[in-house]
Computed example of a mutant assay.
Amino acid sequence: MTDFHTTDILPCHIALTGREVEVLQLIAAGHTNAQIGRQLYIGVNTVKTHVKHLFRKLGAEDRAGAVGNAFRAGLLS
C-alpha cells in the first residue's frame, strides 16, 4: 500500500477566492448549500458552482474530502 502525503496530492499554493474561502468555512461547519446561500445572500446554484470549484482546486470528490484536504493544506484551522 502506498503512503500518500498531502504534498503528493495538493499543490503547494492553492489560490482560493474570498468567496470560496467563505463557502469552504461554512461547508466545514456542516452547512447545506441552501444554508450557505441564505447566509451569504447568494443563490443555491451559485453555491454549487463555488463548491464545484473548491472540489477541483482541492482535488476532492466530496465535501468531506474538500474539508480534509483544506485542513492538510493549512487553509482551515
Score class of each variant (00 low, 15 high):
31 H>A: 12
42 I>S: 08
36 I>C: 02
72 R>Q: 11
39 Q>F: 02
57 K>S: 05
71 F>N: 13
21 V>C: 09
35 Q>N: 02
35 Q>R: 08
7 T>Q: 14
23 V>I: 05
50 H>F: 09
40 L>G: 02
60 A>L: 01
71 F>S: 12
45 N>P: 00
3 D>G: 08
44 V>Q: 14
7 T>R: 15
15 A>W: 08
30 G>H: 07
33 N>I: 06
68 G>E: 15
45 N>W: 05
59 G>Y: 01
31 H>W: 08
13 H>F: 09
75 L>A: 03
32 T>H: 13
4 F>I: 10
67 V>I: 09
67 V>E: 04
17 T>M: 05
74 G>A: 07
46 T>F: 04
53 H>F: 07
6 T>K: 11
77 S>D: 13
31 H>Y: 12
67 V>Q: 06
10 L>K: 10
69 N>L: 08
42 I>Y: 09
4 F>S: 12
64 A>Q: 15
38 R>S: 12
69 N>Q: 13
8 D>M: 06
73 A>W: 00
45 N>T: 10
52 K>D: 11
13 H>M: 10
6 T>E: 09
20 E>D: 09
5 H>R: 11
58 L>Q: 03
10 L>M: 10
59 G>W: 00
73 A>E: 05
33 N>Y: 12
4 F>D: 13
9 I>G: 09
46 T>V: 07
37 G>V: 01
21 V>A: 12
73 A>Y: 01
63 R>G: 03
46 T>Q: 14
16 L>G: 05
70 A>N: 05
73 A>Q: 06
57 K>N: 04
55 F>M: 09
55 F>I: 02
74 G>R: 09
12 C>R: 13
35 Q>I: 00
65 G>R: 07
21 V>I: 09
40 L>A: 03
49 T>E: 14
20 E>C: 07
13 H>P: 00
60 A>I: 05
77 S>I: 04
47 V>S: 05
11 P>R: 15
18 G>L: 12
53 H>T: 12
1 M>V: 08
34 A>F: 09
73 A>H: 06
20 E>G: 06
66 A>T: 07
3 D>E: 14
64 A>H: 14
53 H>R: 15
51 V>E: 10
31 H>K: 14
40 L>W: 01
28 A>K: 11
44 V>F: 05
6 T>I: 05
30 G>F: 06
1 M>A: 12
3 D>L: 09
49 T>L: 11
25 Q>C: 11
30 G>D: 08
14 I>D: 05
25 Q>S: 13
18 G>I: 10
47 V>I: 10
8 D>L: 03
46 T>G: 11
70 A>E: 04
50 H>A: 12
49 T>D: 13
20 E>V: 04
16 L>H: 13
14 I>C: 01
71 F>G: 08
42 I>M: 13
28 A>W: 04
48 K>Y: 07
